[in-house]
Design a protein around this nucleic acid. Sequence first.
RNA 1: CGGGGCGUGGCGCAGCCUGGUAGCGCACCUGCUUUGGGAGCAGGGGGUCGCCGGUUCAAAUCCGGCCGCCCCGACCA
Length: 564
Amino acid sequence: MRMTNLLLPTEREAPADAEALSHILGVRAGLVRQLGAGLWTWLPAGWRVHQNVVQIIREEIDAIGGQELLMPVIHPRELWRRTGRDQIDELFKLQDRRGSELVLAMTHEEAVTFHVSQIVRSYRELPMILYHFQTKGRDEPRPRAGVLRTREFIMKDSYSFDRDPAGLDESYAKHELAYDRIFDRTGLEWYKVDSDVGMMGGTGAHEYMAPCPAGENDVALAPGYAANVEIASAEPQPVAMPAPRSAPEEIATPGMTTIEAVAAHLGVPAGALLKAYPVVKDDGAMTLVVLRGDHRVNDIKLTNHLGQGFRPAQEDEIAERIGPAGYIGPVGSQLQVLLDAAIADHPSGGFVAGANRPDMHLEGVEPGRDFAFERADVRRVEEGDTVGGHAIRIEPAIEVGNIFKLGTRYSEPLGATYLDEQGAEQLIWMGSYGIGPARIAAAAIEQYADEKGISWPRALAPWQVHLVGLGKDGTPERDAAEVLYAELQGAGIDVVYDDRQTGPGEKFAEAELLGCPLRLTVGRRTLEDGLVEAQGRRGRTELRAVPLREGAAQAVDALLREQP
RNA sequence: CGGGGCGUGGCGCAGCCUGGUAGCGCACCUGCUUUGGGAGCAGGGGGUCGCCGGUUCAAAUCCGGCCGCCCCGACCA
């Protein structure tokens, strides 16, 4: 591609409203442009990157037997009503001119299951993997960070159909294999984490995460352990507990309604306090969640444990049912007590808790002896907690893919069944597996950018070679660049050729901004020796010059193979 | 949905408080010079100042309403 024929609107300055690095560089390098909030156009160079990701995914899903097809973006709302998902806030709803109810698909479980329910009749047709690359619509409450969280984006989603749970496990394992290969091939730094099954329902799930500063998820990591903090569990850091007592004793704590104030007043660590967090469940019952004073509740883990949603109790409800806010505790409470595992697993008779009376706390509280409880792991893990003896660290990451065991969540409401060998009707067991190519591209920008711009992994780069021709039209160096350009193209190497009539500084700066792995420079300096300069983008390494005529393409190809 | 900020040529901004000529840098066009790190000189084109209404002789500027966009939080199959 000649740059004189390429729509590559680079910018010297960052757009005023951009914050995330992938947003700034994506716009500055001319890869993407914004149309509206969370609505992005992929310009030619950016689209090449996107297509590179798509092709890697296609090859690896094909390799596990996936069959590519294409399903519509607009669906009849009735289909979504059947699975109960038409009430999701993020679902775009619309009507046609006759008033028919439609939705913009946010995923394609309904559509693919609808077809399979009509087409598949026999166990002989299973297992099966279907997939497509299709635009998804999501009425996001807050699109952000450029291409990272948008209202419309392309997703690869595949769906597996099996006879039974064992078959699903196999299809799931195939996808794990394919995904591991895909993310390895992209050149990203990535890891696979245990994840929450969320409102999709289902029996098991993993997320593929790419660490990057603009990431929206926090991931807990230790050697041999990786989990989304939404579900992460870890051994708490120890607390120097006060001496136990044979029975709780009241102590005056006037005006001290915070953990910090009570701990400071009594001279004990915050972790020696029992933090009482009353919640009202969706069924209306109130539960007292008790955590260590230095810990925080994890809403998702608590929801999963309760098996239903909840909200924090209001102050008047607390006053009526338990005691004065700031002084409540589990001792003497009539409520069901959920005791966090960090406390339950480390028994002590030295805890401090609210006394359920104004300005009073209790010292020497012992769970079990002084109050009954149900154990539950519902806290958010903290940096420094341990898993298998190793301290965990928590870092931001962006979710670039997920794999999910759906079970019969969709086959049941949509009637996707088959006849088994005995002629009995059975539900099909399903899995769904998503990847966001745009997020992979954005994560690659974030992970590898330097002060000069983007530095693509070779597999994603819009072009493998950025050929810079110095001098103006008609000079020997430009003639030589033309010859080299033709030769590289002839050898099947993806090359973008800067044939513009601009100064060398601008050409070099834009080459580094765009971030192709290998830059070749044809200039007077080395031309007289019949050589072309080669520089690797990653680390801006100076590489040996390559001969211009004899075997130039082979030499360039060899250099490319050395690039990351 | 709560909090904060911003809408002025393609991009980045000033002007608004104190009403009266729309301005700067980059980019763009023409010519000449320049060509190994975002060049120089000269000339030139381009903006209903987000939209609607109000006040006024006069509104980018003051007042009211609306829309759009960004950031933090809530939310996020």
